[in-house]
Write a protein that binds this DNA or RNA. Structure first.
Lengths: 337, 337
DNA sequence: CTGAAAGCGCTAACAT
DNA sequence: ATGTTAGCGCTTTCAG
């Protein structure tokens, strides 16, 4: 069951030096040893395929060089890209991200949070909506493991944070649609949205107001972040009798596409649709989806950077990075006829 | 930087017992202690938020309870679902999967393989195409870390393995198209395909033969597994002058959809398309994609099961599980006119 | 029923 | 330039 590991002692014996010597040389602290000794140790290491035991190493260093990452849904391309960015940065920083998807399930999320902590991750990136303030207070705080929050903020007055200018995202979406002449519109978003999604809504409402339209021209329709939910919301959208829909994420829009398609309806002819995120897929659906773009790979990268920075300088002030969004106009929106 | 951890010693002191007692009780080996003692220890543990130090624990047990998972592309929904299955099984088995995506890059793959080993994973699930036999021989074998291969087999005579009946998948695809009357067909697949993909090709060719068509009725077109590559292959497909295309994965098909769409061509009217994998997205594109379904979530689950089984019973015979595929007929294929 | 003691593989003061 | 020693936090004989 267990791997027969070569230990540092064997390398030391084989090279005819002490354990210390090997340790120092292998950790690039071997300046004080002769070139000859260093070469010998390195050679033996290679020959025996020595790999240091992280468990022993971490036990002393009190660091596992692992980062825990909690996301709500691995199957959403948005988060795949987020992870992509995190992995990219972690390679440079020689950390290993441990990624878990909680599938929007509070129980699962708490489970993974606990496990991650058990495995003594050095820090946490929590990009999960369902995590509760209590879970963080109860599990994370006592261990003093630094964490960073993304996509939510009700919890987080003291933690480092990544934010996206979601208010502006909603505003841009709303301005785009109203400029196209739409007056009655719907928004598709989850029932208990996190703060970032509520910001999108707030921005969208602001645009409606700016355009001089009455607030009740906007119909809110609840749907979870999945293609299926978007699809299933189709009838409600149609019943709401609007000419344009703002989907709080792209996945939702793609689900809605299908529902409209099955009913023989045409986008944007019968209904203009704008999404949110700008996932790759947007360019591969028909019609290509107009959306609000978030720089998600960069967001992932920066999340990791901020966290690692915090680990290395525990005492710096609370960090906050805010990312801009932009409108990416494609073919799913058009002037109201 | 480091978390102030509560140690077992503090729990012992607080509870007025020895370290041994705490260890035994917390590891469910406390049968020999009085109920009273057990309760007290458990209570103190709760109160102090004690979490055992995995590094110390693993150092002794020679097991990290972690599994390394290497996949080629996290952004392909097929692999997201694969991971999903792995995570599911791992929860039951109390292992933690560490997932890394190598983005079809040999260097990256070798890097992650090494890192995973450094972090002393107990076993590996390698579902990555670009991994080389040498990398496995050089890195994995000496450490005697059990591993399981999926989606390739040239390497693996002795390792446990998960296989999918890809020959049959290709055959089914070919039979479906020939039964619809198609005579000239193309197949889209990566240039240096892994064995599983080549099996799909072999099955497809067998179907052509069965149908009494000449072998050169099939045009092979190379494209990596990405939407972009499928899109970029469009012109080649059109130049090949075929009436049907077999895409070696669904993602490719969706890319091709876009290329055809931009040229005003119609699926399946102008070209029948069949994919491979049966990702969720297939039902959300227009027309819904006919495909060969692999039970990918189950494959992930079984991969983890097999590996964990191997870890627990190191001496059992080499394990091999073979999964069936099936044709899922939707609207992207039709009779040749 | 409970505890003392040894030791997992490694790093880092502190000698020499 | 190199080695000795102590100890990280835990599990596990073994002795009471």
């Amino acid at each position: 069951m267990m791997a027969k590991k070569v230990t540092i002692r064997q390398v030391a014996d084989e090279a005819g030096v002490s354990v210390t010597t090997v340790s120092q040389i292998l950790n690039d602290k071997g300046g004080r040893f002769s070139q000859e000794t260093r070469d010998r140790v390195l050679a033996v290491k290679e020959r025996l395929h020595y790999v240091p035991d992280f468990n022993a190493r971490n036990l002393i260093l009190h660091s596992s060089k692992m980062l825990g990452v909690l996301i709500p849904d691995l199957r959403n391309p948005f988060f795949s890209s987020f992870i992509h960015g995190i992995q990219e940065y972690c390679r440079d920083a020689t950390y290993m991200p441990m990624v878990f998807s909680a599938n929007h399930d509070v129980k699962l999320e708490t489970y993974y949070l606990g496990k991650l902590l058990e495995h003594s991750v050095d820090g946490l990136i929590i990009a999960s909506a369902s995590i509760t303030a209590e879970a963080i207070d109860k599990l994370v705080k006592p261990l003093q493991v630094p964490y960073l929050l993304f996509d939510q903020n009700q919890i987080a007055n003291l933690a480092d944070r990544i934010e996206v200018d979601d208010y502006n995202g909603g505003l841009l979406a709303g301005q785009h649609l109203t400029e196209l002449g739409h007056q009655k519109m719907a928004i598709l978003l989850p029932a208990n949205s996190t703060i970032n999604v509520r910001e999108r809504l707030r921005g969208f409402k602001a645009a409606i107001k700016q355009a001089g339209l009455p607030a009740d021209n906007l119909t809110e329709i609840h749907a979870d972040f999945s293609m299926k939910a978007g699809y299933e919301a189709t009838q409600k959208v149609l019943d709401s009798n609007v000419s344009a829909v703002f989907c709080a994420d792209d996945i939702l829009a793609i689900g809605l596409y299908r529902g409209l398609n099955e009913r023989g309806l045409h986008v944007p002819g019968d209904l203009s649709i704008i999404g949110y995120d700008d996932i790759d897929l947007d360019q591969y659906v028909y019609p290509r989806l107009t959306t609000i773009a978030q720089p998600v790979v960069e967001i992932g990268r920066e999340s990791a950077r901020l966290l690692v920075n915090r680990l290395e300088k525990p005492d710096i002030d609370r960090q906050l990075i805010k990312f801009p969004v932009k409108l990416v106009q494609r073919e799913s929106t058009s002037v109201k006829k």
